[in-house]
Amino acid sequence: MRSRIPFRPRDPASHPPMIHPDYRSTVLRGPTRPLVPVPQTLGDLTVPVYGHEAIGELDHDLTRNAARNGEPIGERIVVAGRVLDEEGRPVRRTLVEIWQANAAGRYVHRRDQHHAPLDPNFHGAGRCLTDEEGWYRFVTVRPGPYPWRNHANAWRPSHIHFSLFGPAFVTRLVTQMYFPGDPLLAHDPIFQAVPAAARERLVARFDLELTRPEFATGYRFDIVLRGPAETPVEAGR
């Protein structure tokens, strides 16, 4: 059995509100009543476990996992980081799923009507498990910005979607990673919905250590999930 230690609450200073009118879709979708506080019970403290058998050999490499007759067009990048809890401890063997637009800003999704080209060699989805130190690593191409209809001349900054479980059902996190220096960040109501002091945590940083010579530039994006409510005691007590 895994840890049954309760987790710290979601930090309201870190997360966006339910309704942020500048992001129009929240107006009719964000709940209006206060969340009902309840204690964490067994189902909250457990989580589905995926092993290596669930992950294909190329699942982490978006430049190869959908290649048909060549490589995807675009600026090849490595995106890597550590998944940690609030105590700074690695979250091991947890599933990280990502998805993104292609270099032209077009999603494979059937409802995406943006008239930018699809890339026959790029699907835009990947997954991997973190290692013993909490590291995940993907190879992909830098996604392009794309227009949306939230407001006049609205463009989403380049971003990669992330989905994680962490050690328990309550540590689930769905988020987006952005790129440093993107001028669209200042105009994006989804990014701006996050409290100002927390926004920079969603921006990856260029990392020469992760950059692979003659191959790809590297971006570092660490992710912090809810940590234990009590100081953890090592196994074997």
């Binding site: 870190s14 997360h15 992001y23 988020t175 987006q176 990014f191 927390a198 992710i223 912090v224």
Partner: peptide
């Protein structure tokens, strides 16, 4: 403590 990574829409 480290600060939690903010949530974003799916």
């Amino acid at each position: 403590r480290l600060r939690q990574t903010p949530s974003q829409t799916v």
